[in-house]
């Protein structure tokens, strides 16, 4: 349930405003919706196996094949990539992307909990790291909101590399 709502929220948030995207928005949106739907159906199906019958008809056999395909595909990963691509195509503000990142992370955790059947308490050891990650996210988004030091392509590269370096530094400095 939570994973489904978060998947829908991620795709809708990254696709808004619907008219504001560049070329390729529509295919990315279709891929995003399809992957999100498939991810939710896969979680809903769980470990359910249709009862085996020697005399099963074509419809049952096709349904069984579809279920196997649904289980084999990396649908959650597809949803993440499609949502980020949609966000990149929309040229949204940094805070918009920051919120999307929080929702995507929450979606991945919801998928993991639903898949493994574990309680949310299993995530307790990860809370400090997750909090640090969200702190870094806020800092990076805040830095992206500041006016650029110069104009032109070099300025953009510089900011992007600085953000990547900050994230890498944060990961290396993690006292785990």
């Amino acid at each position: 349930m939570a994973a489904g709502l978060l998947a829908a929220a991620c795709v809708a948030w990254s696709a808004s405003p619907l008219a504001g995207g560049g070329s390729g928005t529509r295919p990315a949106l279709i891929v995003g919706i399809s992957c999100a739907a498939a991810a939710v159906f896969r979680l809903a199906a769980g470990d359910w196996v249709p009862p085996a019958d020697v005399f099963e008809n074509l419809v049952v056999r096709t349904g069984r094949l579809l279920l196997e395909a649904l289980r084999a595909g990396p649908w959650a990963e597809g949803t993440v990539i499609a949502a980020l691509a949609l966000e990149a195509l929309h040229h949204s503000r940094p805070w918009h992307t920051g919120l999307l990142a929080v929702a995507l992370t929450a979606f991945l955790f919801a998928v993991h909990l639903a898949e493994s059947g574990a309680r949310p308490a299993v995530l307790r050891p990860q809370l400090p790291v997750l909090t640090a990650g969200f702190g870094l996210l806020v800092l990076c988004c805040g830095a992206a909101l500041l006016p650029a030091a110069g104009t032109g392509a070099a300025s953009g590269w510089l900011r992007a590399f600085a953000a990547v370096a900050a994230v890498a530094a944060g990961a290396l400095a993690l006292p785990v």
């Binding site: 980020l84 966000e87 990149a88 940094p94 992307t97 920051g98 999307l100 990142a101 995507l104 990650g133 969200f134 870094l136 996210l137 806020v138 800092l139 990076c140 988004c141 830095a143 992206a144 953009g156 900011r159 992007a160 600085a162 953000a163 990547v164 900050a166 994230v167 944060g170």
Partner: peptide, 9 residues
């Protein structure tokens, strides 16, 4: 766009 690096953090 630096904010996408933030999304990966």
């Amino acid at each position: 766009r630096a904010e996408f690096a933030a999304a990966a953090a």
